[in-house]
């Protein structure tokens, strides 16, 4: 069976001779959550942006359901893109400060009029109703529909960003440090929400974080990125085994679990 996402020998070098990603290969099965850890600057966001086609790779392949995502352009790219959505780290930056919440949440549905997720059946034409349903899925009431991001707390904003990422019912959700900029008290709520949504919506996750505890909680398998190279990939339960890569053990030792 083909994996949902397959990455083959992916490399990316930014102008200015920064080898952000070197020869990275892995695969992600349907329904799986793959955790990706690495310290700041190790290339995690670069990998996310390549998979989201926000950057183009220098070398290598990105296969989504066996189709070459890295080579698509124009219409074909737009069509493939609806299967891969994203949650960014900073929910303040990831919401347009001038748009009311309900418009932000359903924007992807406006862009793909042909996509009809099952949970929106019957109301696909009613924009505000769709927004209310999506917000309900992430635990927000209809009172936030007409607010702008500045009128929400950080945790609420991240919930809005999650609602938007769900709207097309994607196969793969890329979470780039979704809790890193939130209060500690809110982090656990968001992690639990994401874990629940993954089952409800039958999605796969690429869960990126430098918080090994969060990755351990969320993931089936964990991949470790160091200076742009993948140094270790293992099942989540094997995190504390002694045969882990020294860099991985450094991670588990220096961070309180």
């Amino acid at each position: 069976m083909t994996p949902l996402l397959e990455i083959n020998r992916l490399s990316k070098c930014y102008p200015g001779r920064v080898n952000a990603l070197v020869d990275v290969s892995f695969s992600l099965a349907e329904g799986e959550c793959l955790g990706l850890v690495g310290e700041s600057g190790s290339g995690k966001s670069t990998l996310a942006k390549l998979i989201l086609r926000l950057e183009t790779p220098d070398q290598g392949e990105i296969l989504l359901d066996g189709a070459p995502l890295h080579a698509l352009r124009g219409r074909a790219l737009k069509n493939a893109r609806k299967h891969v959505q994203v949650i960014f780290q900073d929910p303040t930056a990831s919401l347009n400060p001038r748009l009311p919440i309900w418009k932000t949440v359903i924007e992807p549905l406006e862009n793909y009029p042909d996509v009809s997720p099952s949970f929106l059946s019957g109301i696909r034409h009613a924009k505000r109703q769709m927004a209310a349903v999506l917000l309900d899925k992430v635990g927000l009431g209809p009172d936030v529909l007409d607010r702008v991001p500045a009128q929400l707390s950080g945790g609420q904003r991240q919930r809005v960003a999650i609602a938007r990422s769900l709207s097309l019912q994607p196969k793969l959700l890329v979470c780039d440090e979704p809790t890193s900029s939130l209060d500690v008290s809110v982090q656990a709520q968001i992690l639990n929400l994401l874990k629940g949504l993954k089952n409800d919506f039958n999605m796969s996750y690429l869960f990126i974080s430098h918080d090994i505890a969060a990755v351990h909680f969320m993931s089936d398998r964990i991949a470790v990125l160091k200076k742009g190279r993948l140094v270790d990939v293992f099942a989540s339960g094997q995190l504390f085994e002694t045969r882990r890569h020294p860099y991985t053990r450094q991670f588990t030792n220096c961070q309180p679990m």
């Binding site: 942006k49 989201l52 926000l54 737009k78 893109r81 609806k82 891969v84 959505q85 994203v86 960014f88 780290q89 900073d90 930056a93 990831s94 919401l95 347009n96 400060p97 924007e107 992807p108 862009n111 793909y112 960003a161 938007r164 709207s167 097309l168």
Partner: peptide, 14 residues
């Protein structure tokens, strides 16, 4: 390069 623009691109905005 801000994330709300990136998110809009991922969401299929032209």
């Amino acid at each position: 390069e801000k994330e709300y623009v990136l998110a809009a691109r991922v969401g299929g905005c032209s």
